[in-house]
Design a protein around this nucleic acid. Structure first.
Lengths: 121, 121
DNA sequence: TTGACACATAAGCAATCGATGATATATTAC
DNA sequence: GTAATATATCATCGATTGCTTATGTGTCAA
């Protein structure tokens, strides 16, 4: 029971190109496993269903996706939250960003804790 | 000759916590291998010199650091450029960013090609 | 030139990863 | 009920990773 949750790190989760491709698919909104599976096989790489399912498990472990059951399908959707760790990490290289981007990274640094979605205020 | 350059992907390079710690050290500027090595051993994790050197090799392979020789020392410095791929990737999840951050990601998308350092204009 | 120093590379090994085939679980249809 | 569908998990395996020890290479000092 520890094979899939070995490293729940976001950095590890996004290190794999197939997993990034899955997340990319989910930008279009909720999708069933079979829909994503077909798309990945067609547009990225041939692989078996279990292999694909295990990638989904890694993404779940990292909190990068959430699942909702509907009949015998499972609808996956993308969750941005864990990527905030990545954004924060990249952002603290402030000094190396171009000046315009600097504004952003500064904003991130000042954020309450992490970047939380809140009113425009 | 393929052990260390197996996967030159930035995503892979930053997936390792020790390597992220090394980059973090380099935010303070150029450093010798021994200085970084000591710091990592003290503040992060005990490891041997070759292990450390191999992490540096991965970072070099990803273009995340540059090296300059000075006497018998090697001075490493951080290079932001490869991280732009990460920024770009995260940024294209525009729809999921909070509104303020949205401005930034939009800026990135419109950038010439990648985000290049240029005058404030 | 000999030796110490700073660092990289090589070789070998255990742990982890990602893939596969087989199987389990849950839901719907008949 | 049984069968088909949708997805997850198990067991296993080869490839890759990261570590260690041993050794190589370049530079300074004597």
């Amino acid at each position: 029971m520890s094979r899939l949750a070995a490293d729940a790190s976001v950095f590890h989760a996004i290190a794999d190109p197939t997993r990034r491709a899955i997340l990319d698919l989910l930008r279009e909104g909720e999708q069933t496993v079979s829909a994503m599976f077909e798309a990945i096989r067609k547009r990225v790489r041939k692989m078996t269903q279990p292999a694909f399912s295990q990638h989904l498990a890694v993404l779940r472990g990292a909190g990068l996706v959430s699942v909702r059951r509907e009949g015998r399908h499972r609808l996956y959707s993308f969750r941005f939250a864990p990527l905030e760790e990545v954004v924060d990490w990249v952002a603290h290289y402030e000094a190396f960003w171009s000046e315009k981007l600097d504004n952003l990274s500064r904003y991130i640094d000042r954020s309450p804790k992490r970047v939380k979605r809140k009113g425009t205020s």
